Simulated assay, not measured.
Amino acid sequence: QTVRDDQLDRMAELSMIPSIFVAHTYYWGDIHLKNLGRVRGSRISPARSAFDRGLKVNFHQDPLVVQPKMLHTVWCAVNRITRNGVEIGPEQRVSVFEALQAVTVNGAYAYFEEDRKGTLEEGKLADMVILSDNPMAVEPGKICDICVLETIKEGVVRYTKQQADSNGQI
């Protein structure tokens, strides 16, 4: 959470793959600011600094702590706003494209599965979601409002919002 620039430099030298729980900025950002002060607290989950060093950053969640909502994670990385609406380390924001890379391509890379997952290509597993809006086209603050309409795993539809709505599982 509070990795320093010199540590990121060393990670780059070693070709490490940082996995960042960037949703900390939202869920615990206010506490980090209070406990660590503005300067150090604003550096939690320093995704921009990691990307700038050429690291293959991926974003993770801890489903026992927060609900598994990757679009919220993307929103957190792009906006860096706490629960109380405070900007936290805006210099550590990443682009929508980089955030999407972190949860797709770079996630597959971290698990040595980039030959089977992470991008839509012939010969790879057809794991994907259909979204209500294009995250690259909506206002950054609206990314967390995008709905997953359908989930496809290995070419098989596993979830549709229409089915979930009719079953009361919104």
Rank of each mutant, 00 (worst) to 15 (best):
L14A: 12
M16H: 04
M16S: 11
M16N: 05
I17F: 09
S19E: 14
S19T: 14
I20C: 03
Y27H: 12
D30T: 01
D30P: 01
I31Y: 13
H32D: 15
L33D: 07
N35R: 14
N35S: 13
G41D: 02
S42Q: 04
R43Q: 11
P46C: 08
P46Y: 06
S49L: 12
S49Y: 07
A50V: 02
A50T: 03
D52K: 10
R53D: 06
R53H: 04
G54K: 07
L55Q: 03
V57M: 04
N58Q: 13
F59C: 06
H60D: 12
Q61M: 13
D62I: 12
D62L: 11
L64W: 13
V65N: 14
V66F: 08
V66Q: 09
K69W: 12
K69D: 15
M70H: 05
L71T: 02
L71Y: 00
W75E: 01
W75N: 05
W75K: 05
A77G: 15
A77T: 08
R80Q: 06
R80M: 04
N84L: 12
N84P: 04
V86D: 10
Q92V: 03
V94N: 02
V94L: 05
V96S: 03
E98D: 15
E98L: 00
A99C: 04
L100T: 02
Q101P: 00
T104Y: 03
V105M: 09
V105N: 01
G107R: 00
G107Q: 02
A108R: 00
Y109P: 00
Y109H: 11
A110M: 09
Y111L: 13
Y111Q: 13
Y111N: 13
F112A: 09
F112N: 08
E114R: 02
D115H: 11
G118W: 03
T119Q: 13
T119W: 07
E121H: 05
E122D: 10
M128K: 07
M128G: 03
M128Q: 08
I130V: 15
L131C: 02
D133F: 05
N134Q: 06
A137M: 13
E139P: 00
G141D: 10
